[in-house]
Amino acid sequence: MLIHPQIDPVALQLGPVAIHWYGLTYLAAFGLFMWLGTRRLQHPPFVSLPQWTRRDVEDILFLGVLGVVLGGRIGYCLFYKPAYYLANPLEILAVWQGGMSFHGGLLGVLLAMVWFARSRQRPWLQVMDFVAPCVPTGLAAGRVGNFINGELWGRVADPSLPWAMVFRGAGDLPRHPSQVYQFLLEGVLLFVLLWLYARGPRKTGQVSAAFLVGYGSFRFIAEFFREPDAHLGLLGLGLSMGQWLCVPMVLAGLVMGVWASRRG
């Protein structure tokens, strides 16, 4: 069995200022989005649309960060601990205590992109098609931060599994390193598939649909190896909250994909 190395979450201490690894993974995610976004400008249909510029990438990144932070926090409070935060509303602001939801962050980004599309008079789905292939590398960076922090570990695994790992915060039993699974599935694999798919000429909405189906499917699979939230456990049909949130995501992606493919 492997032992989690218990990496110090603080990467660099400069007097009273502590730079955390998790913060650095966020910076890496933003940098990767900016780099990929500028390359995305060379893909169809954006390469033939002169109104799309590097300034748009910068503005989308800024609005996307706001959407991720606000949506992720509010989504976590609503999806995972609604009763607690209803009784303690000021705790919603205590983001330093942890608690972010990807699905809430996704909704926040969707709303942020609605505002961007309306302010620039661009089709909303065209904006989402631009953004979608640039997202998985940021998700991968976030999973690296989860692994460094030794959080969001997996379910108990067979000790004979070569990569089974003991996370000290989870006791002495070997577990699946689910952060690594999610890094590989939702991050690396989804990025490769979506980037290659998006490089070709696609109808408006098809790339966004592929992201919804791809992420929802990969996250649904990974959740079978990830320890459910202690205060929720497994819900109906033996599925976790993360899996139930992926179901409407995949369905929406399938409907959007069919609709987009039938458009002229």
Rank of each mutant, 00 (worst) to 15 (best):
H43R: 15
W52M: 13
V109I: 12
Q13C: 11
A11M: 13
A170T: 00
I19D: 06
V69N: 10
I148A: 02
L63I: 08
A157H: 07
V250I: 13
Q182T: 00
L14Y: 15
E91D: 09
L239C: 08
M100W: 11
F30M: 12
L193M: 10
D59S: 10
G236C: 03
V65P: 07
R118V: 00
R202Y: 10
P162A: 08
P177Y: 01
L36C: 10
A260D: 07
Q121K: 08
Y85F: 14
M128C: 04
F183N: 01
A210V: 04
S119C: 03
Q51A: 14
L36M: 11
I19T: 08
C77K: 10
L237T: 02
R55N: 14
E186G: 03
P162T: 07
A83Q: 14
V180E: 00
H4Q: 04
M1R: 10
S119A: 06
F220S: 02
I60N: 12
L234C: 03
G171Q: 05
G169T: 04
R262N: 12
R120N: 02
F33V: 05
A94C: 08
G154P: 07
L235W: 14
G169R: 07
W163K: 06
V180Y: 01
I60V: 14
Y181Q: 01
V213R: 02
F211S: 00
V247T: 09
Y22V: 05
L90V: 07
I148H: 01
V17M: 11
L36K: 13
S178G: 02
Y197E: 01
V127I: 10
G64C: 03
L78H: 12
E58R: 15
L107Y: 09
V188E: 00
K203V: 00
R40A: 12
A210K: 06
Y76W: 10
L36V: 05
P82F: 07
F116G: 01
A209V: 07
C77A: 12
S208Y: 12
P16T: 13
V17W: 14
L2W: 13
L251H: 09
V135G: 02
G150N: 09
G75C: 10
L90C: 05
W21Q: 10
L237A: 08
A18Q: 15
G171D: 01
R202W: 11
G105C: 08
E227P: 04
R199Y: 02
S101G: 02
V57E: 11
L2A: 14
L32R: 13
V95H: 05
I7V: 13
A29T: 13
H176Q: 02
L184K: 05
L184E: 00
S217G: 08
P123D: 05
W96D: 03
F30H: 13
P123S: 06
F167I: 02
M113W: 08
G205W: 12
Y26W: 15
V69I: 12
S160Y: 04
